[in-house]
Design a protein around this nucleic acid. Structure first.
Lengths: 222, 222
DNA sequence: TTGGCCATTATTGTCGACAATATTGGCAAT
DNA sequence: ATTGCCAATATTGTCGACAATAATGGCCAA
C-alpha cells in the first residue's frame, strides 16, 4: 500500500505516524481538539514529542493550531474538498506531464502490466481496484515525475488529506470501470511520450473524480 | 513587500522568521550545518524553540534534516531550480485560472491600477519593478484564487525558496519590460474572466522566467 | 605505515518542571 | 436579569538537564 517507504526512526516519528493514522481514519474525530497532555499520556511519550508531531501535522494541513490556544483536527467540508482537488488536479497533471518524459521504459512497461493485471479484477466486478489499485496507479505516476518537490507535496501533503475524506465520508463508490478506462488512456499517452496529452487526461480524470465525489456528498446531505 | 502579513506572536515564531530570513538572504550560507546549540546561543533562546524553528523550515524545504545527525541548509543547484519552477508553473497557473473566476471586480480594478502605476517606472528604465512590483503582482493573483491550500503552498513554501535563489545567485536581471507585457496580458485575461487563457498565459510567463534564469545560470558557470 | 577497533566527545532526542497566556466561572453593579 | 470585571484554573510556551545516538581521534596490531 505505502509505496513511499518512510519508516519511523525516532519516537517523535512514531508518534507522528500513529497520530496521523488515527486522524485520517477518524480514530480522533474531525474538528476535535488535540490536547498535548492528553495525547502525551495516551501515546506514553513526553509532551515535547507530541508537540513535534502536532507541528508536523499542521504543515500537512491535517490540524490547525492557534498560538497559546491549541490545535484542532481540521473540519471536513465540501468547499475544502473542492479546493483540495483543485490543487491535486494542478500538481498531478504536472506529474503526468513530467512522467511522460522522465519515466524509464521499464517503469512504463511495469505500469502497463499493473493495469492489465487489474483488468480481470475490474471485470469480475470487485471493488478492490478502487482501494489499492487506484492509489498504486497514481503513486507510480507521481514518483515517475522524478520531481522531488512535486513528489513530497503530493505524497506527504495532499494524499493523506484525500484519504481522510475518503475514509471519513465513506467514499469507495463506483466509478471503478470508467476510472479504469481513464487510467488506461493516461498510460497510453505516457507510453507514447505525449506529455501534453498525459497532463490533459490526468487533469480531466481528477476533475471527473472530484465531480463524482461532490455529487455523492450532496446526495448524502439530503 | 510582504503582502501576507504573518506576524510573530511567540518566541518560536520570531526565531523561525529570523532564521528563515538569514537563510534566504545567505546570512547563513547554503549547505552549511545548523547546530541547535549554536543557534540557541546566537538567537538567545532555548534549544527547544530552535528545534521547532528548524522543523518548520524543513517542511518549507529550506533545510534538510537527518535523524540523530542534524540539519543542513539546502544546497542550491540548477536542477532543483528547474523542479521548483515546474511546481510553481503548475500551481500558479491554477491560481491564475481560479483568480479569473474568483477575484472581485474591485480587486481586478486594483490590479489594473497597480500595473498602470508601474508603467512609467518601467518606461523610465528603473529596475524597481523587478524587485517589488513583480512579487506584488504575483501575490495578488495568488490571493485572488481564494484557495487556501494553493495560497499556503505558494506563499509559505515555494516563494521563499525562489527568493533564496534570486538573492543568492544574484538574479535581478532584465526581462523587466517583456515581463511587464506578459503581466499586462494576464491581467487582461483575468479582466475578461477568461480562466483558460489566464492559466495558459501565466504558465508561459513562468516558463519564460525559468528559461531566462537557466540561461543566466549557465552564463555564470562559464 | 596503514587499517581497524575502541574510548572519548559532541550533538541530537527526550523528559519533567516552570512561566506565560487564554479560558472559565463567579461576583458585583447597574 | 444582564453585563462587565476579576480571580481561579487549565493549557500552551519555554527552559535546562539527562539519555541516546553518531562523529572523532587515538591506540594497537598486522
Amino acid at each position: 500500500m505505502n509505496l513511499v517507504t518512510e519508516q519511523p526512526v525516532t519516537s517523535s516519528d512514531k508518534t507522528f505516524f500513529q497520530l496521523r493514522k488515527d486522524i485520517v481514519e477518524g480514530e480522533v474525530s474531525a474538528g476535535s481538539k488535540l490536547s498535548e497532555t492528553e495525547l502525551a499520556t495516551r501515546y506514553a511519550v513526553s509532551r515535547a514529542v507530541v508537540r513535534e508531531a502536532i507541528n508536523r501535522l499542521e504543515t500537512c494541513h491535517l490540524v490547525e493550531r492557534k498560538a497559546n490556544v491549541g490545535a484542532r483536527v481540521v473540519a471536513l467540508n465540501p468547499e475544502k474538498l473542492v479546493s483540495l482537488y483543485q490543487v491535486r488536479e494542478s500538481l498531478e497533471g504536472m506529474a503526468a506531464r513530467l512522467a511522460a518524459v522522465n519515466m524509464s521504459d521499464a517503469e512504463i512497461a511495469a505500469l502497463n502490466n499493473l493495469l492489465d493485471s487489474y483488468l480481470q479484477t475490474v471485470q469480475s466486478g470487485e471493488t478492490y481496484y478502487q482501494e489499492a489499485g487506484d492509489v498504486d496507479f497514481h503513486y507510480r505516476i507521481i514518483l515517475g515525475s522524478k520531481n522531488d518537490h512535486l513528489i513530497a507535496m503530493l505524497t506527504e501533503g495532499i494524499y493523506h488529506l484525500i484519504r481522510m475524506y475518503r475514509v471519513q465520508l465513506g467514499m469507495a463508490g463506483p466509478r471503478v470501470t470508467t476510472a479504469f478506462d481513464e487510467h488506461k488512456s493516461i498510460v497510453q499517452a505516457i507510453s507514447n511520450r505525449d506529455a501534453e496529452l498525459a497532463e490533459i487526461l490526468m487533469r480531466r480524470h481528477i476533475l471527473y473524480t472530484k465531480n463524482s465525489l461532490e455529487k455523492k456528498l450532496l446526495q448524502q446531505a439530503r
